[in-house]
Amino acid sequence: NKASVVANQLIPINTALTLIMMKAEVVTPMGIPAEEIPKLVGMQVNRAVPLGTTLMPDKVKNYE
């Protein structure tokens, strides 16, 4: 099972992601793969992401 990116804290809307905000966890359904964490640093979320929520591609601005 592959790990996904999960919010390590509440991430407010329009916040630029940092390493400390994210952790890798095996979750269902799968979100953004954990190996993409370095790519996500500096990207902004387009909505608030509660603690423990899986980061889905549609929650990150300009994620492809």
Rank of each mutant, 00 (worst) to 15 (best):
M30V: 11
A48N: 13
L10Y: 15
Q44V: 14
T53E: 15
M56T: 15
V49F: 06
E25C: 15
I32M: 04
V5W: 06
E36V: 07
P50G: 08
I32Y: 01
N14S: 06
K39E: 09
P29K: 04
V49E: 05
M22L: 10
E36P: 01
T53K: 08
K39V: 11
A16S: 12
E64Y: 13
V49M: 09
L17A: 00
P38Y: 10
M22V: 04
M43V: 04
T53D: 14
G42V: 07
E64Q: 15
V45N: 00
Q44N: 05
P38A: 09
K61Q: 10
N46P: 02
E36R: 09
D58Q: 07
I20N: 12
I37F: 02
I13H: 06
V5T: 04
E35T: 13
V60F: 06
T28C: 15
P29C: 09
K59M: 15
A3E: 10
I37L: 08
P50N: 07
S4Q: 03
G42D: 03
G31K: 05
V60K: 01
M22I: 07
A3I: 03
T18I: 07
V41T: 04
N62H: 11
G52M: 04
Q9T: 10
V6G: 02
G42K: 02
K2W: 13
A3F: 10
L55D: 04
V45M: 03
T53Q: 14
Q9W: 08
A3T: 06
K23I: 10
L17P: 00
Q9H: 04
N46S: 11
G42M: 04
E25T: 09
M22A: 02
N46M: 11
V27P: 01
P29V: 07
I11V: 02
S4E: 00
D58F: 11
M43E: 00
S4N: 01
V6A: 02
N14H: 13
A16I: 14
K39M: 13
P50I: 07
L19G: 02
P33Y: 07
E36F: 12
P29A: 05
E36D: 12
M43W: 02
L17M: 11
V45Y: 00
A48I: 11
Y63L: 04
P50Y: 08
M43G: 00
A24C: 08
A3M: 11
P57S: 06
S4K: 01
V45Q: 00
E35A: 13
K59L: 15
A16L: 12
E35N: 13
G31V: 02
Q44H: 11
A48D: 14
T54E: 03
V27Y: 05
T54M: 05
A7V: 06
K59H: 15
Q44L: 11
T54G: 03
I32E: 00
V26N: 10
T15K: 06
M30K: 12
A34H: 05
L17S: 00
E35F: 12
L40I: 07
K23E: 05
M30H: 12
M56E: 05
G52S: 04
V5C: 07
K59S: 15
T18V: 07
N62G: 15
L19Y: 11
V60H: 02
I20A: 14
K23T: 09
I11R: 02
I11D: 03
P50C: 09
R47W: 10
A24Y: 06
L10G: 07
D58W: 15
G31E: 02
V41R: 04
V49G: 02
M21L: 04
S4D: 02
K2A: 13
P38M: 09
L55C: 07
L17F: 06
G31D: 00
N46V: 14
N1H: 14
V49Y: 05
E64F: 13
L51T: 11
K2R: 14
N1F: 14
A34Y: 05
A48E: 14
Y63Q: 01
M22T: 01
M22W: 05
V26Q: 09
L19S: 07
S4G: 02
Q44R: 14
G42R: 03
P50A: 11
T28V: 12
G42P: 03
I32C: 05
D58A: 08
V27L: 03
M43T: 02
A7W: 06
T15L: 06
N1E: 13
Y63D: 02
L40F: 03
I13S: 10
N46Q: 07
K23P: 04
P29N: 04
P29F: 09
A3D: 04
V60W: 01
K59A: 15
K23L: 08
I37N: 04
P57N: 00
P33R: 09
A16D: 10
P38H: 10
I20C: 14
Y63C: 05
L40C: 06
P50S: 08
T53C: 14
Q9Y: 06
T15F: 07
L17I: 12
L10M: 14
K2V: 13
V26I: 13
M22H: 00
L40H: 00
N46A: 11
V5D: 00
A24W: 08
P12T: 07
N62Y: 11
A34P: 03
V49P: 05
A34R: 04
P57D: 03
I32N: 00
A24T: 07
Y63W: 12
L19H: 07
V41Y: 01
I11L: 01
T18N: 03
N62W: 10
T53P: 02
Q9N: 04
L19A: 09
T28H: 13
P50Q: 10
I20P: 12
P33G: 07
A34W: 07
P12R: 08
P50W: 08
M21K: 03
Q44G: 05
V26R: 11
R47V: 15
A3Q: 10
A34G: 07
A16P: 14
N8P: 00
V5Y: 06
T28F: 13
T54V: 10
A24N: 02
A3V: 05
V49N: 04
T53N: 08
P12C: 09
N1R: 12
T54S: 02
E64C: 15
L19E: 09
A24E: 07
Q44F: 15
K59Y: 15
A48K: 09
L51V: 13
P38E: 10
K59W: 15
K2L: 12
L51E: 15
M30S: 12
M21G: 00
E36H: 11
M43C: 11
P29D: 05
P33M: 06
N46E: 07
G31P: 00
R47G: 12
M21R: 00
V49L: 10
V26A: 07
P57A: 10
S4Y: 04
P50V: 06
L55G: 01
I13G: 06
E64S: 14
E25W: 10
Q44W: 09
R47K: 13
L40T: 03
L40G: 02
P29S: 04
T28Y: 14
T28D: 14
A16V: 14
T15N: 01
V27R: 15
T54R: 01
N14F: 11
K61Y: 10
V26S: 07
